[in-house]
Measured scan of single mutants.
Amino acid sequence: MTSCHIAEEHIQKVAIFGGTHGNELTGVFLVKHWLENGAEIQRTGLEVKPFITNPRAVKKCTRYIDCDLNRIFDLENLGKKMSEDLPYEVRRAQEINHLFGPKDSEDSYDIIFDLHNTTSNMGCTLILEDSRNNFLIQMFHYIKTSLAPLPCYVYLIEHPSLKYATTRSIAKYPVGIEVGPQPQGVLRADILDQMRKMIKHALDFIHHFNEGKEFPPCAIEVYKIIEKVDYPRDENGEIAAIIHPNLQDQDWKPLHPGDPMFLTLDGKTIPLGGDCTVYPVFVNEAAYYEKKEAFAKTTKLTLNAKSIRCCLH
């Protein structure tokens, strides 16, 4: 018999989150649709729960009410004593943790798909938090293969000092899905179709896995975050240069030392320094102006996964 890495157990509980950011409308629209008619997301033997994560922000069509829901799922915020004085999103995070967690427990949901849009030209993107997770690498390989020839990129946010504390991190297997470009507060049919297909293929993978299909060893190309880059700023902290036209919409493309990065209003080009080629992502993302992030630098690498098969009882 072929030796293989056996994944822990079959997958039982899956959640699909929309509206973690209330103005990213593809996930909101799909989740609302699936709450009314969820036939397309159901798979035999699998509990799939669509869920609106930040209903107040969705109602106002804004990213958040008090603070970013997708950055506060750490033990400090989840452990705060519940009171009306807490920011709305912290209270909501505790409610979500109660419903789908608790985080880092045996009772937490197996998989959470968190649906997002970006204003950046990132196409279909899967966000991975753990480079050693054979199950998710296999799932992402399946999704990428199923979507081809449509490109699907994998963004690895594993980093020693950049801690995200994402909404989906309460699950055993957290999956971020990011599709763009799409303006905030807008629905685009092409973007919706791409996100819908990503979810379909992900659920198909889980179904095949649960039925005992063995997935042979595989490898995927990923883009691992190195650092986030702020806009150049003046002495008052105001933005002093904008994304250069040569960099705009060039997510995932190589940016070499000396290539144009920013452009000042008086026409001066600010190039990339250093001696390493990087791959920019979230270029000129609207939501990241407040976070002082013009783009993120990534490096390209390959992740390998062992063969996996479900432990059938």
Rank of each mutant, 00 (worst) to 15 (best):
A294D: 00
L126R: 02
K163W: 11
L35S: 10
S169Q: 10
N133S: 12
P260C: 05
E9W: 09
I111L: 12
S105G: 07
C61W: 08
P151M: 06
I225H: 09
P216A: 07
F215G: 02
K163E: 10
P216W: 03
N284F: 02
P149F: 03
P102C: 13
M139Y: 00
P280I: 02
H116C: 13
E40H: 02
N304W: 10
H5T: 12
T44L: 10
I226G: 11
K81T: 15
R309F: 05
G27Y: 02
G27E: 00
F29R: 08
P50S: 09
Y88P: 07
F209C: 04
R56E: 10
R233Y: 07
K60C: 11
A165M: 12
V14F: 01
T125K: 02
N77F: 09
I199F: 02
A240Y: 08
C67V: 11
Q248K: 03
N23L: 03
Q194L: 15
P181C: 02
L203T: 01
E214C: 14
Y173K: 11
V222E: 00
P149R: 03
M195Y: 03
L162T: 13
V175M: 02
V90I: 13
I239S: 04
I137S: 00
C61L: 06
I11H: 05
G45W: 04
D110F: 00
D107Y: 14
L303Q: 01
I16P: 03
V90Q: 10
V14M: 03
L301W: 15
E129P: 10
T44H: 15
L136E: 04
S3C: 10
R168I: 14
L25H: 05
N210Y: 03
A39L: 11
V179G: 04
H116Q: 11
Y223P: 00
I6Y: 10
F113K: 01
V175Y: 01
L156C: 07
V222R: 00
N54V: 04
E106P: 11
K268C: 15
M198I: 11
G258M: 08
G185Q: 06
H116F: 13
T26G: 07
K292I: 13
P151N: 11
A287L: 07
K213F: 11
T277Q: 09
R63H: 10
P217I: 04
R71W: 10
P280Q: 02
E24W: 00
P183A: 14
A305I: 02
V28T: 12
G273Q: 13
G185I: 02
E40R: 00
E221P: 06
T44D: 13
T264S: 12
A305R: 01
Y164W: 12
L263Y: 11
Y164H: 12
T302A: 06
D104H: 10
A219N: 14
F140G: 04
P87A: 15
K81D: 14
I111G: 01
G38I: 12
I65Y: 07
Q184F: 13
V186G: 03
D259M: 11
Y173R: 15
I143V: 09
K163I: 13
E8T: 14
D190R: 03
L78F: 12
Q184L: 06
I6P: 08
K80N: 13
D266G: 14
L192R: 02
P216E: 10
D110E: 08
L263R: 07
H21P: 00
E9C: 07
Y142V: 00
S83H: 07
T26V: 03
F17R: 09
D110W: 00
H201S: 06
E211A: 09
R132M: 12
S307E: 15
Y88E: 14
M139W: 00
C311I: 07
D104E: 12
L75I: 15
V278S: 04
A241W: 00
T2P: 11
C311E: 14
N77R: 12
G19N: 03
Y64K: 13
D230K: 07
I191H: 04
E8V: 12
D249Q: 02
L247S: 00
K172G: 05
Y64M: 09
K172Y: 04
I111Y: 02
E89H: 05
G267N: 07
E95R: 13
L35I: 14
P257C: 05
V90W: 11
Q250M: 09
K197I: 13
M139Q: 00
E158T: 05
I96H: 07
I308F: 05
K13E: 03
H141E: 04
G274V: 03
Q138A: 03
V14W: 02
M139I: 02
C4S: 15
L247Q: 01
I157W: 10
N54T: 05
M122P: 00
L203D: 01
D251Q: 03
D130F: 03
T20N: 04
K32A: 11
Y64L: 15
T302W: 07
L75F: 14
D68T: 05
L192A: 15
I72G: 14
I199S: 00
L255S: 03
F209V: 06
E76H: 10
P55T: 15
P254F: 00
D107L: 15
L35F: 06
Y155E: 06
F100L: 09
S131V: 07
E293K: 06
I206R: 00
V229Y: 03
L203S: 00
N210T: 06
D249G: 08
L78P: 08
N134R: 04
N23W: 00
E238V: 08
Q182E: 06
D251L: 01
I11A: 05
I127L: 11
F205T: 00
H207M: 15
E290K: 15
P50K: 00
G79S: 09
D230A: 09
Y289T: 08
D266L: 05
